[in-house]
Write a protein that binds this DNA or RNA. Structure first.
Lengths: 237, 237
DNA sequence: TCGTACTAATGGTTAAACCATTTGCAGCTG
DNA sequence: CAGCTGCAAATGGTTTAACCATTAGTACGA
């Protein structure tokens, strides 16, 4: 439950002070920290120690460091980049398999679809229909449209996630998709028949969402993901 | 898709070389890197630069650094700690509401229960029953057993997550529970009647899991979480 | 008006020294 | 001999001071 205490590490103290400031809102995204030579005075540490702290904060995704005059440490808008990186590391160390990723996604897409049905605005619904039309067009293009279809499919899923209004779903699903595409691109299902089935699923989901039928959206999305996981696993074997 | 290239940063090069070694398996978990004063020679950089690289690797969770003779940088077994930290930062920074956390959890618990029903071993089932018995005892203790009941409830949910055999579920749920307890402890439902209902739900879920009834387990777990989210939201209002 | 070159601010790197922590061993003591 | 004490050495942690590299702004000249 608790993390081990590492004592007498000055840079850790610096990291925590800045991090707390960001979380508390004292340090707002976009604003700049003082220059290293100033900061080291304020913290009462050497520049080397301060820089180790800044490296840690950078790795956590909390700041971005630019060189040159008017450069320096800029507080970042927090995003899911670091989460993605860590997921990627886990995956590459074989701790997380394709099956794990897919199962995880299955767990979430149902909830996302239900929330999207509940909270989507008119403009969101319009976007869904637009993406659906795009997908259909890519499908008609035959083999050369397959990759584009898969991209559109993903955009549609991410649009649903954004409609859920839940940043956790958005960030985590972003990570999952990023890692699936980076490390398992080849296992994504292709082929006329299977993509047609995929499209039919999407159409049904979008219809349920636009009709604000939460339970139908949940069931359809879950079933859809589950079925396509099976296809991927067959391909993996 | 691609990350921005940051040029002329020597420490990044060091990070990548070591990280690649770990991923490729050349550097195995548990093994030690040479001392800083040796490493800096091998990489041809100064000690300060090398240390910035080590700080980054440490923050990524790839190495652990110990002081003293026989200390140094030890390659770590990759685990979910960093993922949890990132998720925690996202949660805190986005000022994610209790509702967001709860919805997210709702999305996952169903999948977890279904997988647990599918993959649980005999000993896992035994643990579930043991935890259920404990929970019942805490319930009988009245008001003073409430906190203990909630802990047991959480342990039961984590046991289910572990039974799923999916490291992603395990890591993410760990982080979600940790953050709920850290920031929303006061909103957790208490009271004789409500905890009794909670217990009944748990009993039903465990029964479904031990009978390997995936769909029942999924439905029960999802419904359970959803219902208790409503209670929490009422309390929040 | 445009472009070139200089200037200054800022992060990136280096070097050498010293501090702090930890392990293990030598030697002392009972 | 058993066990404690304290020192020595290895290793990470920190400091200092200097210099290199990159970049935005500015002054100046074609």
């Amino acid at each position: 439950m608790f993390k081990h205490v590492k004592q007498s590490r000055a840079y850790q103290d610096v990291v925590e002070q800045i991090q707390d400031g960001i979380i508390a809102g004292t340090l707002k995204p976009g604003s700049q920290l003082p220059a290293e030579r100033d900061l080291k005075e304020q913290f009462g540490v050497s520049r080397g120690t301060l820089r180790e702290a800044l490296r840690v904060l950078e790795q956590k995704g909390l700041i971005e460091i630019r060189t040159g005059v008017a450069g320096g440490s800029i507080i970042r808008e927090v995003n899911s980049e670091q989460l993605s990186e860590n997921l990627g590391l886990l995956i590459r160390n074989r701790t997380v398999s394709l099956r794990d990723l897919a199962e995880f996604r299955e767990g979430m897409e149902g909830g996302v679809a239900a929330l999207a049905a509940q909270r989507g605005q008119e403009q969101d619904m319009a976007l869904l229909k637009k993406l659906l039309t795009e997908a259909e067009e890519h499908l008609k293009e035959g083999r050369k449209g397959w990759d584009a279809f898969i991209r559109t499919d993903e955009m549609l899923h991410m649009a649903l996630a954004r409609m859920s209004g839940n940043q956790l779903f958005i960030s985590v699903l972003e990570s999952v998709y990023y890692n699936i595409h980076t490390y398992y691109e080849n296992y994504l299902s292709r082929g006329k028949k299977i993509l047609q089935e995929n499209f039919n699923d999407l159409q049904a989901i979008v219809t349920a969402v636009t009709e604000r039928n939460e339970e139908a959206a949940r069931e359809l999305a879950q079933g859809h993901v589950r079925r396509f996981n099976t296809y991927m696993e067959e391909k993996e074997a």
